[in-house]
Design a protein around this nucleic acid. Structure first.
Lengths: 205, 205
DNA sequence: AGATGTGAAAGTTTTCACAGCC
DNA sequence: GGCTGTGAAAACTTTCACATCT
C-alpha cells in the first residue's frame, strides 16, 4: 500500500469522530453517503478513503458503525498508548495543558518541561514542571513518542533536536517555524499565524 | 484572477514571515531559491505563487525584500486593522488570550465573551469578560470582522450563527466540528484532534 | 432496490525547463 | 552568468459512473 495522503488521514480522523457519535446514539449501520454529509465531501471520497485500507463495508447495506470505528482506530494507531510530553510551560503551554482535549482523546500529557527557573517546580494539577535538563534522563527510562512543542520560535529547532535524540518521533509544533527533522520523524505544524492571515486574506477578497 | 488555493495563501504567510526576518537582518534582495529553502519547497513553486499576484521580481536579480514584504502584506490584507473577538473563556480561550501571538501579529483581541456566570465580569489584563448576550449590542456599534471560537463542540454552530448574524465574516474555529456557514463567511479550523491522530498514524506506519 | 468498491475521467497542484530580461 | 515568469508536463486528488454483491 502506498503512503496515504495527509488529507486522507485527516478525513479518517473525522470519520472516527463521527462514528463515535453514531455509536453513542445506538446507530448500527451507516452509508458512505451519511458519512460524507458531515464533512461536506462526496460519498465516493469516503469509499475511496476506506477502500484504501480494506473492504470494510457490505454492498447494499453500508458499514457497521462499531466495526468501522475499530478499524479506523487501528489504522490511526489509537489502539495503543503513546507517551506524550509537553515542552514549554509558557502561556500557550499552560493553555494546552489545562485544555483537556488531548487527554480525552487518549493522549494524556505525562510530563511538562521548561527551562525557566520560575516555572520549574511549580505544580500543575499534581504534575510538577521539570527542568528541560531532565528530559534526557526521564526519556531514557521510557521515551516520549510524541512531544508537544510550545516554546519560542528561536528555541524550537534546538529543542526538537534534543527530543529526537532521546527517541521522540512525533512532534506537534506550535512554534511558527518549519522544523528540520530526520525522515523518520513526523511533524505536524499548528500555525495560528497562517490561520489568521488566511482569514484576513479571505476577508480582503 | 481565479481564487488562490489555501496552500498558496499558507505559503504567502510563510514568505511574509521570512521576509520580515530578512528585513530585520538588513538583507535587501532575495531569490526564489532562498525563499524556498526554508519552506522545503521548490523555487518554481515560490515564483508561481508570487507571479499569480504580479511581477514583483527582477530577472537576474531576484526580489526586493522590503517591496515584496509590502506586496504580500497587501495581498493578505495585513494593511488594515481587523476587529477580533474571542468567544469562549474556558481553558482554551484563556490560553489563546494570554498567548500573545495574535496581538504581535496584528490581530489584538478586543473583547471576550462567555455564557458562564462565573467567568463574566472577571478581568483579563484589564479586559472584562462579557456575557455573550451582549455580543449583538457591542457588535452593532462596530462589527467584529473575525471571531475566535473556543467554545464546546455542541455550542459551536449556534454561536457561529449568532456572530455571523452580527456581521462577522471570518471564524477561527477551535471546536472539533465542521461549521455550516453561508458562502461569504470564511472559516479556518484548528483541529488538534486531527493533528494528534495524524501523528499517531504516522508513528504507526 | 440499495450501497460498496473501483477503474477511468476530470480537476487541481506541483515541478520542469526554458525564453527573456538584468 | 544569474534569476524571473510561465507554458507544458507530471504528479496527485477528487469525482464519476457502473459492475458487483446483498
Amino acid at each position: 500500500m502506498d503512503r496515504a495522503s495527509s488529507s486522507t488521514v485527516a478525513r479518517l480522523s473525522s470519520y472516527f469522530r463521527l462514528l463515535g457519535e453514531l455509536q453513542g446514539e445506538g446507530v448500527e449501520t451507516v452509508s458512505s453517503k451519511r458519512l460524507a454529509e458531515r464533512g461536506a465531501i462526496t460519498s465516493a471520497q469516503v469509499r475511496k478513503d476506506l477502500s484504501r485500507f480494506g473492504n470494510f463495508g457490505r454492498r447494499g447495506l453500508g458499514y457497521n458503525v462499531h466495526r468501522l470505528r475499530d478499524e479506523i482506530g487501528q489504522i490511526l494507531g489509537l489502539n495503543r498508548v503513546w507517551r506524550v510530553a509537553l515542552v514549554g510551560a509558557g502561556n500557550l503551554g499552560q493553555a494546552l495543558f489545562s485544555y483537556e482535549g488531548f487527554a480525552k482523546q487518549g493522549f494524556p500529557i505525562e510530563a511538562v518541561f521548561d527551562t525557566d527557573a520560575r516555572k520549574i517546580g511549580t505544580s500543575w494539577k499534581g504534575l510538577e514542571v521539570q527542568s528541560f535538563a531532565n528530559f534526557a534522563k526521564v526519556a531514557r527510562k521510557k521515551p516520549f513518542n510524541i512531544v508537544i512543542l510550545a516554546v519560542p520560535t528561536e528555541a524550537a529547532q534546538k529543542v526538537a533536536n534534543s527530543v529526537i535524540a532521546e527517541g521522540t518521533s512525533g512532534i506537534l509544533n506550535f512554534a511558527a517555524t518549519r522544523l528540520d527533522v530526520p525522515p523518520h520523524v513526523a511533524v505536524r505544524e499548528v500555525d495560528l499565524s497562517i490561520a489568521m492571515e488566511s482569514l484576513s486574506f479571505a476577508l480582503s477578497q
